[in-house]
Nucleic acid binder design. Structure first.
Length: 478
RNA sequence: GGUCCCAUCGUCUAGUGGCCUAGGACAUAGCCCUCUCAAGGCUAAGACACGGGUUCGACUCCCGUUGGGAUCACCA
């Protein structure tokens, strides 16, 4: 056990984005590998855009990925009194001041600064007016915001666990708003206050927050606390090196679930984007916990590569034990109505059926649809396959196969193979001439696991039933 | 534009001054295996952005250039 405490703090203004999920994962792994605590906090201070529906989605996504939290979920909006107290204290201490500048005024300043090629910072008009000791003269009819008074000179060094030492000049830092004119606190105050209050020791987040860090570090100091350690991970980019967006693939974690990805595969992929352990590519989540270390986190942004994710998914499908796979696969089967949620097949049968399928499935949707011909009573023929293989002249072949299969004593793949090879020898045809039509008869299509395995797994009774249906489908020669 | 970050095959990366003729993986191409589809095996092609230093010696350290990214809200 250690005193390490990290947090994941999503804002519920959208789905659990793949990039946020990666941040959550880094935090979670750091906590789990160091014996620390992982805390979930919902940053819902943006009342306009936050919804409970998004919160539910985020929690669902995290549960699906297996990112369990030790404390929370806390909601920032429930902690608003604490935040307000901090703001009052800051004002009293002279670290913050009221600002009566109107949004229009500010906007005009920004535009002018942009035009002049100057930094777009607040001009600190009200700070000078208030001289920090006394509040600025209230302006009639204007509800003020509260700004944090940044140091005007000197510099601050952030010793980032990933990026190393990053230096910022204090004069570059803006007097950011910590309370809106309606009195509600804003993000930069709230994160710091909550992180202090929750005893967060390490802040691991996306690189897009790096520029906020010096400002927050000063707020930490002002509310009498040492800043935590920071670790800023690089971002995930789309294939065009721009921001990862829907054009590049799914951005919501739950979409990956729906597309048939195994959570362990997504986790594996996401962590390998910017972290490595020698030449190893495939990791179980347990291995990740064992090997994860901040030192091996990369510094450069990485591009999302769907192909590699897909490959990893296939690898994870191959290595997931049957009993775990059953749990993951059932919802996909159930959504097609193939089985119901409580499906409990014979464990041995399921394991051998799965073993034949696992080598050829890229995702769980594919796996489920192949599984159907093992589960259902009969199959529907693919029209093209039927036209090509279920011909009148095939009838006779099927009839012989039926007779042979009826005669096999021990209905195993090996015996079935022997018997089928006998048919082919007698008829002087290649195995393919027999296997393909039978494959269509049993699976409905032209691609499947080895035909002898299929026959064994489907079982004699259903095989004969389907073969006879196929004979009917062959029609008669005319 | 200011500030900050980043820079090895198309992509993810190994590499911490000599082990580098730069390794692995995905993707690509060819071959093998084969009852279909996969999986698998083998092989091929493919990178240190550029320019200066430092050093006996730079992919590795320093500086600059170029290129990419992030950020600059009464959003988080």
């Amino acid at each position: 056990m250690s005193d390490i405490r990290v947090r994941f703090a999503p804002s519920p203004t959208g789905h659990l984005h793949i990039g946020s999920a990666r941040t959550a994962l880094f935090n979670w792994l750091f906590a789990r590998s160091q014996g620390g605590k992982f805390i979930l906090r919902i940053e819902d201070t943006d009342r306009e855009r936050s919804t409970d529906q998004y919160i539910d989605g985020i929690l669902e996504g995290m549960r699906w990925m297996g990112l369990d939290w030790d404390e929370g979920p806390f909601r920032q909006t429930e902690r608003i009194d604490l935040h307000k107290k901090h703001i009052e204290d800051l004002i009293k201490a002279g670290d913050a001041y009221y600002c009566y500048c109107s949004p229009e005024e500010l906007d005009a300043h920004r535009k002018q600064a942009m035009k002049d090629g100057k930094p777009m910072r607040y001009n600190r008009k009200c700070r000078e007016l208030s001289n920090l000791a006394e509040p600025a003269e209230p302006v009639e009819g204007v509800a003020p915001v509260v700004r944090f008074a940044m140091p005007l000179a000197g510099h601050i060094v952030i010793d980032d666990m990933i990026k190393g030492k990053v230096t910022f000049n204090n004069e570059e830092l803006d007097d950011l708003i910590i309370a809106r004119s309606d009195g509600t606190p804003t993000y930069n105050l709230v994160v710091v206050a909550d992180d202090v209050d929750m005893g967060i020791t390490h802040v691991i987040r996306g690189e897009d927050h790096l520029n906020n860090t010096p400002k927050q570090a000063h707020i930490y100091k002002a509310i009498a606390s040492e800043p935590p350690r920071f670790a800023h991970q690089s971002l995930i980019l789309g294939p065009d090196k721009g921001k990862m967006s829907k054009r590049h693939g799914a951005t919501s974690v739950l979409d990956y679930r729906d597309q048939g990805y195994l959570p362990s595969a997504l986790v594996n992929y996401l962590i390998r984007l910017g972290w490595s352990h020698g030449d190893q590519e495939v990791f179980t989540t347990e291995e990740l916990i064992k090997y994860f270390s901040m030192e091996n986190v990369g510094t450069s942004p990485s591009i999302y590569d769907k192909d590699k994710l897909q490959w990893l998914n296939a690898e994870h499908i191959k290595m997931t034990p049957p009993e775990v796979m059953l749990r993951h696969l059932t919802p996909y089967l159930a959504s097609e109505g193939t089985v119901d949620e409580g499906w409990a097949p014979d464990a041995e049968w399921f394991a051998s059926a799965l073993a034949t399928l696992v080598e050829r499935a890229k995702d769980l949707n594919e796996l489920a649809s192949s599984m159907r011909y093992y589960i259902l009573e009969t199959v529907e023929f693919d029209q093209k396959a039927k036209a090509k293989f279920l011909k009148p002249e095939t009838k006779e072949l099927f009839e012989e196969a039926v007779k042979e299969l009826e005669g096999i004593e021990d209905f195993t793949a090996a015996n079935i193979e022997e018997s089928f090879k006998g048919i082919c020898e007698r008829r002087e045809i290649g195995l393919g001439k027999l296997a393909q039509p039978v494959r269509v008869a049993l699976t409905g299509g032209t691609a499947s696991p080895g035909i002898f395995d299929v026959i064994e797994i489907v079982g004699r009774e259903r095989v004969l039933l389907r073969l006879n249906k196929a004979i009917e489908a062959c029609g008669s020669s005319e």
